[in-house]
Amino acid sequence: MRPDPAHDGVHDAPDAREPAFDAVAVRAGGAGGGHLSLLRAGVLIRHNTLLLLREPGPLIGRLVMPVLLMLALRPLYVAAEGPAGAGQAAVGALVTFSLLALSIVGGSILTERVWHTWDRLRATPVRPLELLVGKAVPVLGVLALQQAVVLATGVAVGGMAVDSPGLLAAACAAWGLALLGMGSAVGVAARSFGQLSAAFDIGGFCLTTLGGALVPLATLPGWVQAAAPVSPGYWAATTLRHAAAGETAPTLRGVAVLLAVAVVGGVVAGWRVRRGFGRAAAV
């Protein structure tokens, strides 16, 4: 055989033809320029919304269950905290089930890794930020819908009082972003559905219980109350309560904490996505 020894094996092939490539002319959102292509992000948001809607069961469950839980727990909260407990029941159910909704974010990322579509997307000009935005925006929409349904039901049926809708909206948005950050971080860190399930089952339960979302914090042992501030669930529950009561300063402090959680989760997820998973992460 006579291989070409020139140029370290780089070989000028015989029969090379004149480039006659007829590229499709209508293009937008090229690879360069800016940190975020709106076109690509839009394509991914549309695609991920489609994926969510094609499997609506979990979404419906996460909309209906918190309403039922809120109505079931309302007497307990009222007994523990007096008339104000009616609002706490709505907030508690919301925080509990939105924490469980973390699995939507993490599960959607891990599922793509199992399907090998995550790496397929990374082999396109898509930026890690666009990938995460594409995943996050539809889920943020689901969380917003969940929050709207639970809070509206809480006000209409559960006797919840909202003194400052603006503060409440800010608190809800901050909590939604924190959930996205945490869910993304867990989704990219988990190496199997077993790990993901354990993280959400154990972590979610601990966070909701420790944070005083599932049952009133006042009814829990002293050591749990002392440890509660380490839980994002605690900050979500207290911030939403302060926001509903129109207390600006504690609401803003809580919003800041929740946004910090969102940033940390987002940075971890972005770093991991940028670094890639490689074959070692096969699940």
Binding site: H7, V10, D12, A13, A16, R17, E18, A20, F21
Partner: peptide, 8 residues
């Protein structure tokens, strides 16, 4: 190392 031309 490898090089590929258009149309190849």
């Amino acid at each position: 190392s490898l090089a590929v031309r258009p149309g190849e």
